[in-house]
Design a binder for these strands. Structure first.
Lengths: 157, 157
DNA sequence: ATTATCTCGGACTAAATAGATCCGCAATGT
DNA sequence: ACATTGCGGATCTATTTAGTCCGAGATAAT
């Protein structure tokens, strides 16, 4: 059970975008340079966030990425599931209905208890991530961070 | 973020072993037949549970696997982490200290907030799984299950 | 309006990991 | 002694992840 390494990249990228002035953008190349990441691969992952609707992209000179919504309305869960997918890590394939020990379909009207417990754990994980927004992250940074980020990321103070 | 398919196998195998009479064993071949699973691969995964200390194995004829401890002292978390490893799905590589936007080491004395939040979610997941034991699982089964499992799995009533 | 340039966007390739199998060895009970 | 079972290693394949490349489209200066 492993999240892609790009998860960290995108969380930090999104947090950085949240520190820009509203309407301002940063290009994939700028973000890649800012964190020293492979630019092409980062660009690909940023597209996933666009498709998921948490980022908006504008093409052409002076274009780039920005948050699609206020930072307070973007949760860590939305970011993580945008890059990794929203499916549960545990997939019940109903092996209780297979093989020599197969249960009659009649006893399988209620979902498998093991699958239930695993799903419950996943819900706890999602709930925890959904409780934090990008605005919370930015608020926890030192007050000097946003202006420095703007300067070093886009070159604008 | 995906758990191996063998996770489901081992959870069900452990639950089945929990229904045997104390001291009784089931072989890898019996378990594979019981759920219609690839025997060789299942055997390999069962070894992981032995190494993790939740199962005990005896070789030789009439040998096989049994629970290493009472079912009430084996949690779903222990089983899942035995097969998948106990490492967190999110790995912080401190990219905040790399590239053009690198923070001075002085500002990185406190751990990255994003890593903290991800770790917190993982703790919530682990806590949820640790709250359920194999005994809880067996108790939720219909009362007729244990004797049927014993019959169909090992051939003993 | 045109052109030069900068951006995203999707197609494509390579490396890593999971899934699965097989064989020989050690141990145990009949 | 022999059949049965777990254990560990070597091997092979397939899927996923990581990473690169080039083209379509939009913008801004000329």
């Amino acid at each position: 059970m492993k999240l892609p390494v790009s998860t960290e990249w995108l969380l930090h990228c999104a947090a950085s975008l949240a520190q820009l002035k509203s309407g301002d953008t940063a290009s994939a190349a700028q973000l890649a340079q800012y964190f020293d990441l492979p630019a092409a691969y980062l660009a690909k992952q940023l597209q996933a966030l666009v498709k998921a609707g948490v980022l908006a992209a504008t093409t052409g000179p002076r274009g780039g990425f920005r948050l699609a919504r206020p930072a307070s309305e973007i949760t860590l869960l939305q970011l993580v599931e945008a890059v990794d997918g929203a499916s549960s890590p545990y997939e019940c394939r109903e092996i209780r209905q297979q093989g020599r020990g197969a249960l009659p379909a009649e006893e399988c009207r209620t979902p498998c208890i093991l699958a239930e417990k695993m799903a419950e754990a996943h819900r706890a994980w999602r709930r925890s991530l959904a409780a934090t927004s990008l605005a919370d992250i930015v608020a926890a940074l030192p007050p000097s961070a946003p202006s420095r980020t703007r300067l070093r990321l886009t070159g604008a103070p």
